[in-house]
């Protein structure tokens, strides 16, 4: 095999000619300048680098580019153009669920992944759904509240 790695990035067909062992997180930030994808720990502990890969929440720090062949990747930049985002964004703002903001791109994508799977989650399901996304500012309660509001306001969207 000597082809480039082919995948869809925020809706656009993309060819990557670099090393298949390159880290998706680094390539998103450095090659494609998608800096909404944050780097927190590079070991799958914090969730700041979360993206959606074929609709599932994934830590982009834990993915080698070769694994992306044929897949559909959505970062916060792509997701922010969707109707789902509008609902989640409004809900987070309504209860001031954002402080420093570093974890929020990952948190918002974790919210999306959760609501796609479970449109009307219980509090426990919300906490489990967001359990891989660490926030050092809010203490989580406002974020949980925001997800509850998004589920309610976006009823029927997910």
């Amino acid at each position: 095999m000597s082809d480039a790695i082919r995948f869809t990035l925020n809706g656009e067909e993309t060819l990557y000619n670099g090393n298949p062992a390159d880290r998706l997180l680094d390539v998103l930030r450095e090659t494609y300048k998608l800096t909404g994808v944050k780097c927190g720990c590079k070991e799958g502990e914090c969730g700041a680098c979360s993206v959606l890969m074929d609709g599932e929440l994934i830590n982009s720090c834990m993915v080698a580019l070769g694994r992306c062949e044929g897949s559909n990747i959505v970062t916060i930049e792509g997701f922010s153009k969707t109707e789902h985002f509008q609902v989640i964004d409004k809900a987070y703002a309504a209860v001031s669920a954002v402080q420093c903001g570093y974890c929020i791109p990952g948190m918002v994508l974790a919210t999306e992944a959760l609501l796609v799977k479970t449109p009307h989650p219980t509090e426990e399901e919300i906490r489990t759904g967001l359990s891989g996304n660490l926030c050092r500012c809010t203490g989580y309660n406002a974020i949980v509240k925001a997800v509850q509001i998004a589920a309610k306001e976006g009823d029927g969207l997910w």
Partner: peptide, 21 residues
């Protein structure tokens, strides 16, 4: 290379992966 969640902690560049996903 299965999920990569252990391999990518090291994130070695000089390696050839067999993606079995």
């Amino acid at each position: 290379y299965g999920g990569g969640t252990d391999l990518m902690i090291e994130g070695e560049k000089d390696v050839c992966y067999l993606f079995v996903n």
